Amino acid sequence: MWTSFAGVKVPAADEGPRNNRYQSVPTGYARTGAGAALAAISATIRMSVADDNTWPRVVGTLVAPSAARDQWSVNRVQLSITQPVPKDKAPRVIGYTVESFTPDKATVGIVTRQSDDSMTKTTATVRWVVSGDWLLELPAVDNTTNRVQALDTPPAGMIRLPESN
């Protein structure tokens, strides 16, 4: 199933979220590859499009504490988002790949169809925390690796998500 957050559709399933599914900071993902992928997709979308009033709660709840999270927050405060993403501009998640998985850490490729019909894959890492959920782990501040890559075709092994309505 799909929920909507700030104009962007976010996938949900039996693997999560189990808590606050229709609110800005849903939690409660299964400790599986699918649970990790859903948590990574949700946190990545939410931190990317949350408005000025919502982003601190999103980042504080769904992103692992780190110097990278602190730096991201400093940068985010310098811009303003007050409106949801217009429907005709919203990216659509079409699937994901599980690049690596252990019960404590997973790296996921989030495959997205952009509004101009191009396709991208965003790499996201989540870590299982003591409180019993996956948190998005932002790359180190000095990391120069591009987490987003353009795609011509969906990657082999992509787990396709159903179309959102």
Rank of each mutant, 00 (worst) to 15 (best):
Lys121Thr: 03
Arg127Thr: 06
Val148Glu: 13
Thr144Glu: 14
Pro139Val: 03
Asp117Asn: 06
Thr153Trp: 07
Arg147Val: 03
Gly109Met: 08
Met158Tyr: 10
Pro139Lys: 05
Arg113Gly: 00
Asp133Glu: 11
Thr97Pro: 09
Gln83Thr: 14
Met158Asn: 09
Ile94Arg: 02
Val141Phe: 04
Val148Ile: 14
Asp104Ser: 12
Ile94Asn: 00
Asp152Lys: 05
Gln78Ile: 05
Thr122Cys: 06
Ser131Asp: 13
Ala124Asn: 05
Val148Gly: 03
Thr112Asn: 00
Asp142His: 09
Thr107Ser: 12
Asn143His: 03
Leu138Gln: 08
Ala124Glu: 05
Thr145Lys: 14
Asp142Gln: 08
Ser100Arg: 10
Pro154Cys: 08
Gln149Cys: 06
Ser80Tyr: 11
Asp133Ala: 04
Gly132Glu: 04
Ala90Met: 07
Lys121Met: 14
Ala124Ser: 13
Thr144Leu: 12
Arg127Gly: 03
Val126Cys: 07
Thr107Trp: 02
Thr125Trp: 07
Ser115Asn: 11
Thr125Pro: 04
Met119Ile: 12
Ile94Val: 14
Tyr96Gly: 01
Val108Met: 04
Ala90Val: 07
Gln114Ser: 05
Val93Asp: 01
Arg113Asn: 05
Val148Thr: 15
Val98Tyr: 04
Asp104Ile: 01
Leu135Trp: 06
Trp134Ala: 05
Gln83Asn: 14
Ser80Thr: 14
Asp104Asn: 12
Thr107Phe: 03
Thr112Val: 04
Ser80His: 09
Thr107Glu: 13
Leu79Ser: 14
Ala150His: 09
